[in-house]
Amino acid sequence: MQFWLTQLLNGLSFAALLFLLASGLTLIFGLMRIVNIAHGSYYLLGAYVALTVVQATESFLAAALAGSLTVAAVGVVMQRAFLSRFYRAEQAQVLLTMGFSFIFADLALWIWGGDPHRLPTPRALAGSVDLGLTFFPTYRLAVIGVGVLVALFLWLLQERTRLGAVVRAAVDDQEMARGLGIHVDPVLTGMFAVGAALAGFGGVMGGPFLGVYPGVDSEVLPLAFAVVIIGGLGSLKGALVGSVLVGVLDNLGKALFPELSYFTLFVPMAIVLAIRPTGLFGRA
């Protein structure tokens, strides 16, 4: 029982991280049909920038802000200067973001070197909590909480605000939204920035327990893709359900079949694809 509870909580904390990544990926896809390979690089950059800032200021909050905002700025430049010129040319966009992911990975290796690093756990969240059956690290519980808050925030943003209504309109029929006089372009850039910032923030949040090292970008990216494929491209609800599914299954896989852990994820993905090629909540 204790084993399963620990695994479940581990899985959920990982799911929260995956949600930070996958929600941005799916938002960007839903709005702009961009399959962003550089999304893993955003995670990597966020974590590295936070590392530098936390070493200079010793403040986790400042590091989290710096990591997210830097990545948001990088995302805005990528979207405005490059991706917006290739609207709906998916193959060109994939190659473009792939090129950027190589550039970012190599630049990060150049700047921060090849050694693995770990962000320090914020002091207030150090130690562990007694859950009755087991002790669990406070920080990881906090990550679950952050994931829930972000999901709630995104849901409120999309369903309860005017901006959210514009976003939904642009997802459904961008041309019609333009025709109605809605300025879609700033919304696209803004949502790209939000998606990038979430991924960068994911890197910061994952830093204290997963660490940051060259190659972490291409380790988290497949998981984020598995999430959006299972959940359905473009669906926020799908990203949430997919994250929980992938996070928990990945942790069970790691505990039960450590060597096949990566691959065990692709079995549920294959099953979902075989039944619903557009994912659980996706639309054709």
């Binding site: 490059f82 190659l95 473009l96 792939m98 090129g99 950027f100 992911s101 190589f102 550039i103 970012f104 990975a105 190599d106 630049l107 290796l109 150049w110």
Partner: peptide, 11 residues
């Protein structure tokens, strides 16, 4: 820096 160059070639 081959990866960097390759990335630039892609772009």
């Amino acid at each position: 820096r081959w990866m960097l160059i390759l990335g630039v070639v892609f772009v």
